[in-house]
Design a protein around this nucleic acid. Structure first.
Lengths: 216, 216
DNA sequence: CAGAGTTCTGACTATTTGGTCAGCTTTTTC
DNA sequence: GAAAAAGCTGACCAAATAGTCAGAACTCTG
């Protein structure tokens, strides 16, 4: 084992990030098993041994990448106002999720693969953090149902709809990218996705769109 | 290369199936990259070389497994009556999809992983067949929207909702399996999932459940 | 029951992989 | 400005992997 009990200097931090970014791209493209340390090193333009200087093992590196993602999402999606009306909360939540997918498509895809792969490569610690991320909203939804503010729905199915459909779009985005060599989807594309998602989710809950959204 | 231009005897066919089943389990658990030919051989209780006698390469084997899945789904989901009412078609479609997930959870999971992985390991031939599988329903949905029979929705988003939510359940099924050592979810569990799904999808389309379904 | 065709397999190879490490260079610290 | 610490890396290794192949063991047919 390497990469333990050592002082981190600013230079070291920069290199670490550089490797982390390369790793993110690699894991997105090939998944955990398919990822190759050598390719990560090449992409980061450092020798392979340098990768192992900062990350003891492939798993450690993967954990570090996922950890970043989870932090990001927790930070952005955490605050839910318990008294706000469901339609607003859901709409805000969805638009934030779509925005995060737009900003960090790679991270989102890795997360999705892990989710469908049964969390096989994640450390217990991160698994717990990840679950917390969904359960927060789920309990809120259950409260709304109990209070008769929305139609009865399985909260986890609903959240999964949000997650999966966003993901579907991130996926077709990758295809668009490789076929048309368009570097990213336009902001309009993402707005349209968010609109479509909001409409679907609100209809499922028997709610009407709140004023501040777009139409169609 | 092996496994070409050779007469297949009944015995050979049985062995081939035996290996195919083992491969399905292995690919489900570990994905394409993570799958190990040796483990497939062990599970099928044949020497590794025997696997290569029937399947030239890992890719060939994977293609064979996926091909089975696609055939299965095309056979079960193909017939859509163009004049039937949308609610019935959608409900039947969903219940059939859930049923297939119940009967072939492994196949479903492999398919899902491939879908989210961007179809990286599939031959062009199978990619086309697979796309056809969704586009059939998608055009039907678009017709309904054009005729004002259902509310406007992105057909692919809707199909993805069906697919993803079923998948979510197949996934939590795997977890249930490994935690409680319950071999499979009960029929009731699946009925509940189907009910929940039907309700969500119909609400999205602005439709009411048709008589022959269950309630709640 | 003999010969042809098919099925099977142990032993092997070439390659790739994650990971190590001794010693080098650079940066920081006092 | 020298000692200490951190950063870096080429060369290496053990293990694992997909795939090969020569020939033995079956099974089917006439």
């Amino acid at each position: 084992m390497t990469a333990t009990g050592r002082k981190i200097t600013p230079l070291g931090n920069r290199r670490r990030d550089q490797i982390l970014r390369a790793a993110e791209a690699e894991f997105e493209k090939y998944g955990f098993e398919g990822a190759r340390i050598q390719r990560i090193a090449d992409l980061a333009e450092v020798p392979k041994a340098n990768v192992h200087y900062y990350f003891a093992s492939k798993s450690t590196l993967y954990d570090a990448v996922l950890s970043n993602v989870v932090d990001l999402w927790n930070a952005a999606l955490a605050p839910i106002d318990a008294d706000a009306d469901p339609a607003t909360v859901l709409e805000d939540y969805i638009r934030m999720k779509v925005e995060l997918t737009r900003l960090y498509p790679a991270a989102t895809r890795i997360f999705a693969q892990e989710m469908l792969g049964g969390w096989q490569h994640l450390s217990e610690h991160l698994k717990r953090e990840t679950r917390a991320w969904t359960e927060h909203l789920a309990t809120e939804i259950e409260n709304w149902i109990g209070q008769g503010r929305i139609l009865p729905v399985d909260p986890f199915h609903l959240i999964f709809v949000i997650w999966a459909t966003t993901q579907h779009y991130a996926e077709s985005g990758t295809q668009v990218k490789s076929i048309y060599r368009k570097n990213s989807l336009t902001r309009q594309d993402h707005d349209r996705l968010a609109d479509s998602l909001v409409t679907m989710v609100l209809r499922i809950c028997g709610l009407e769109p709140v004023g501040h959204g777009r139409s169609t």
